[in-house]
């Protein structure tokens, strides 16, 4: 009965957050110590700068500028990189950069889940044993080591000293799957180590709690094997916690990816952000940062909805209220 109202309220909240986030980013860019165009295009003739100002709406005050930018942003026009000789659209840069970053993060999440799920389940199942303590101790240490440290050391040992894989650059899938993955191994490994540690620790404590549930004893009394109970009865309810955690860790992963792209010379979104920053392209920078934030918010919404599908408990809670 109230489902529609609930939905409308949630969408309203989402729109408000998206609006405020873009406003925040636009506001940040106004903290520059001088006029944006003066900083972006130093040494250019004043008439040229004036044209750019009008084009961007910077002459219309903060809100005038913001709404013009926002309208374009929603339409998919993210502005341009300006140079002395001309300009390149941010969208054209993103066309190259976005797939690289998305693949990098996707692979990292897949690897992290693929390793942490069996590890978390088995260490919870053997809680208190030597195996469990060894896993927990190792993971605690690795959860604290920043991804760039792991990246640099991997690049040194595996890439340079052993020469097993290519340490630098990006090769698209179309130029050969083997080469593609060879270049991705180190960046993905660097990013997933921290995630593995976080997910495994979380899953372990969650599973230990679930193992004490009545329905686990009930499942055992049917004569099922421990393995089946662990996967079918214990992992399912714990997987929702894992999904929520994957969403929470996305922010850290995005930050980590910015550094890792830089270390391994992958020209993804993080690379573009650093490029915009280095070349003082504040309009492009604003769009890029807003894009990251909007993407992050939307990802969280998707996970939230998905976990509702997986877990009937949250579905009911929402449906009933």
């Amino acid at each position: 009965m109230n489902k529609l109202g609930e939905l409308a309220k949630r969408i309203g909240q989402l729109v408000l957050v998206l609006f405020l986030v873009t406003l925040l980013v636009a506001f940040l860019m106004r903290l520059l110590p001088a006029d944006t165009v003066d900083i972006m295009l130093p040494g250019q003739p004043e008439e040229f700068k004036e044209v750019i100002r009008q084009e961007l709406g910077l002459d219309k005050g903060f809100f005038g500028y913001y709404f013009q930018w926002l309208t374009n942003f929603v339409k998919g026009d993210f502005g341009s990189f300006y140079f002395a000789g001309g300009s390149e659209t941010v969208a054209s840069h993103l066309g190259n950069a976005l797939p690289k970053s998305l693949l990098l993060m996707l692979y990292s999440q897949i690897v992290a889940l693929a390793v942490s799920i069996p590890l978390g389940l088995s260490s919870a199942y053997r809680a208190g044993t030597k195996f469990d303590r060894a896993v927990s101790g190792t993971l605690f240490t690795f959860s604290s080591v920043p991804s760039f440290a792991i990246g640099l050391i991997l690049a040194l040992v595996v890439g340079v000293k052993l020469g097993w894989v290519e340490p630098l650059g990006y090769v698209p899938m179309s130029e050969g799957l083997v080469e593609h993955f060879k270049h991705m191994v180190l960046p993905v490994a660097s990013l997933s180590v921290g995630l593995i540690a976080a997910y495994t620790r979380l899953l372990r404590s969650d599973v230990i709690a679930t193992l004490k549930e009545d329905y686990v004893t009930m499942a055992a009394s049917k004569g099922l094997s421990d393995r089946r109970i662990l996967w079918r009865h214990v992992f399912r309810p714990s997987s929702i916690t894992l999904m929520t955690s994957a969403a929470l860790n996305m922010g850290g992963l995005i930050g980590g990816a910015v550094v890792i792209e830089n270390i391994f010379s992958i020209q993804g979104v993080g690379f573009e952000i650093i490029y915009a920053l280095g070349t003082r392209q504040y309009v492009a920078l604003q769009s890029l940062i807003a894009l990251v934030a909007v993407g992050y918010v939307l990802f969280n919404v998707v996970v939230d909805i998905a976990s509702g599908f997986v877990d009937p408990r949250t579905r009911e809670r929402r449906g009933l209220r």
Binding site: V17, L28, L32, I254, L277, L285
Partner: peptide, 29 residues
């Protein structure tokens, strides 16, 4: 809490990067 949520929806590193980019800039490159 809305403002906290809004600020938290920009990943840490990206937010600090943006702030530094703006605050540590000189007019003359």
């Amino acid at each position: 809490s809305t403002l906290f949520n809004v600020v938290l929806s920009v990943p840490n590193l990206v937010l600090s990067l943006a702030l530094i980019a703006v605050l540590a800039t000189n007019v003359d490159p």
